[in-house]
């Protein structure tokens, strides 16, 4: 993953806790769930774009975490490991909804003229609502890169598409977000 700030809960997860989880200690697993469910829910919500799918996906992912806890080598890698399971479940949820990540039409990114003279401001709510309106494919790539800190190479592997496609989709997604936020600024 790219080196950047993570949004995970900083609760101390020790090898002892992981070992207790491996032995089926429910209280230990609940501690693990409490430490990560908040951040993981945010990933699910960003990826699936609705509360119901996000909760279903998170539930399935944590059941998978429980089932595969024996595969986790040490507590040090628990964060990235759980996150990857959650992201994979989100992608499966999207695939079930017939979201295709490969874009058959390679269209050049449209960049408006006169960017240097633009005057508008980003706000968290405007960016969030702009991302929500993106097509699933664009939103997925943008979320994985911008919020979940995966590299284009990792995203390409996850989605089964080429690295150049993820880069193109990311640029187009970013451009669309910029245009939507700019429009929102103009109508204020």
């Amino acid at each position: 993953m790219k080196a950047s700030a993570t949004n995970l809960n900083q609760t101390q997860i020790t090898d002892t806790l992981i070992d207790r989880c491996r032995k089926g200690d429910v209280r230990a697993f609940r501690e693990l769930y409490n430490a990560y469910s908040g951040a993981m829910y945010n990933i699910c919500l960003r990826m699936t774009n609705n509360v119901s799918d996000a909760e279903d996906t998170l539930q399935e992912a944590f059941i998978q975490v429980h089932r595969n806890i024996h595969k986790l080598e040490n507590a040090g890698s628990v964060s990235a490991w759980i996150k990857r399971i959650v992201v994979n479940h989100c992608l499966n949820t999207l695939r079930k909804k017939k979201v295709y990540f490969e874009d058959p039409e390679v269209v050049e990114v449209e960049v408006e003229d006169g960017l240097d003279e633009e005057h508008f401001s980003w706000t968290v709510s405007a960016v969030k609502s702009a991302i929500e309106t993106l097509p699933h494919g664009y939103r997925t790539v943008l979320n994985l890169y911008l919020f979940e800190d995966y590299s284009h190479k990792e995203i390409a592997e996850m989605l089964g598409i080429s690295e150049s496609t993820t880069k193109t989709q990311y640029m187009r997604a970013k451009e669309k977000v910029r245009q939507i936020v700019k429009q929102q600024n103009a109508t204020r």
Partner: peptide, 29 residues
């Protein structure tokens, strides 16, 4: 010119987060 989207998200990362899932989700799990 507005700042870059990436920089904006990085600087306001925590503000993009919402509270966690419903407390009932653990019961279901």
């Amino acid at each position: 010119m507005p700042e870059d989207l990436e920089r904006f998200v990085q600087q306001h990362r925590e503000e993009f987060e919402v509270p966690g899932p419903s407390p009932h989700l653990w019961d279901a799990i």
